[in-house]
Simulated scan of single mutants.
Amino acid sequence: MKGKTQLGEFLQARRSHLRPEDVGVATYGERRRVPGLRREELALLAGVSVSYYTRLEQGQAPSASPEVLDALAFALRLDEPERRYLHDLARAGRQRPRGPRPAPEHVTEEHAQLLDVRGEAPTLLLGRCGDVLAWNRLGHALFAGHVDPDAPDLPDRRPNMARLVFLDPHTRDLYADWPSKARAVVGHLRLVAGRFPDDAALHALVGELSAKSAEFAAMWADHRVKSHMLASYEMRHPLVGSLTVVQQTLGLGRGTSVVVATTPAGSSSRAALTLLAQATVPTEPARTPARAATD
């Protein structure tokens, strides 16, 4: 996922999604062989020369100024996360020394305290690529009750939410609108790719998912970028049935984030979470009765 190539592919993909009538470009009834805007039309909208834009899209321009990138973002009708992603791709494409390898991800004492205080709400602590670094009891029960609850403690066995969403039948069935959840996962990975273009773990994850899931490969090729800080999902849980949760994601720095699932007070969804909490309370091992004293 080299920066220059990704920048050109992103520009081309987003250009192909824009119809001339969406941006006020007259076509005079002309039949077009390919969908979307032409390079010259986008260049005109952005106020740059066609030759320069062509070189930029083909990865042959050494750099683009922030002003040019903002002009392209405006012409392409990008939202704020997509605009930031465009800038990230441009920075990744510039000549620069390779940065240090990302440090292994682990749970700090502060992160553990955060999970403790969120004990009444399903909570996950996720790494850059969606690895589950930790979860509280209810987070495990809601999102992946079929997975070993101690798996996040072992780096080589940590569940990965992207793998679960695309490759695990249980997680696929968990979401009533699975395509929406899947697109959110891919959109988030796109954001991560822009921020951490040299992350070997991300390269490996994208390669694995592209090889094992045609749906992931198609969504990844679409170059959609999505910020997933707030999203509502209807879930079909095997223990408590249907419930709707709002998944709120809070960034903790260096790509680590905490995901909390909330429900409205007094709702049937809150009642379902309460039932799930009761159904998954750990059972204490039965005590062996003391042997009666003998005379």
Rank of each mutant, 00 (worst) to 15 (best):
Val246Cys: 04
Ala26Tyr: 00
Gly47Ile: 02
Arg137Asn: 11
Arg254Asn: 13
Ala221Glu: 15
Lys226His: 08
Arg254Met: 11
Leu44Ile: 04
Glu105Lys: 05
Ser16Ile: 09
Ala151Cys: 09
His228Lys: 13
Leu189Pro: 02
Ala272Glu: 12
Leu18His: 03
Met235Cys: 14
Asp131His: 01
His228Asp: 15
Glu30Thr: 08
Val34Gly: 05
Val48Phe: 00
His228Cys: 11
Gln278Arg: 08
Arg101Leu: 12
Arg96Leu: 11
Met235Ala: 04
Leu115Met: 10
Arg236Phe: 05
Thr263Asn: 04
Val259Leu: 15
Leu76His: 01
Leu164Tyr: 05
Val245Met: 06
Leu133Ser: 10
Gly139Ser: 10
Gln58Pro: 12
Val246Leu: 11
Ala176Ser: 14
Arg118Phe: 15
Thr280Cys: 07
Arg91Trp: 11
Thr5Leu: 15
Leu164Pro: 00
Met161Asp: 05
Ala176Gly: 07
Gly266Val: 07
Val281Trp: 05
Ala71Gly: 03
Ser269Cys: 07
Val68Tyr: 00
Leu124Glu: 11
Leu42Lys: 01
Leu276Trp: 02
Ala141Asp: 09
Tyr52Leu: 09
Pro179His: 06
Met1Tyr: 10
Val240Ile: 14
Ala162Ile: 04
Ala144Ser: 01
Ala211Gly: 06
Ala200Phe: 02
Val107Gln: 00
Val225Phe: 06
Leu115Ser: 02
Ala134Trp: 10
Gln60Trp: 15
Ala13Lys: 02
Tyr233Lys: 11
Val117Trp: 05
Arg195Lys: 02
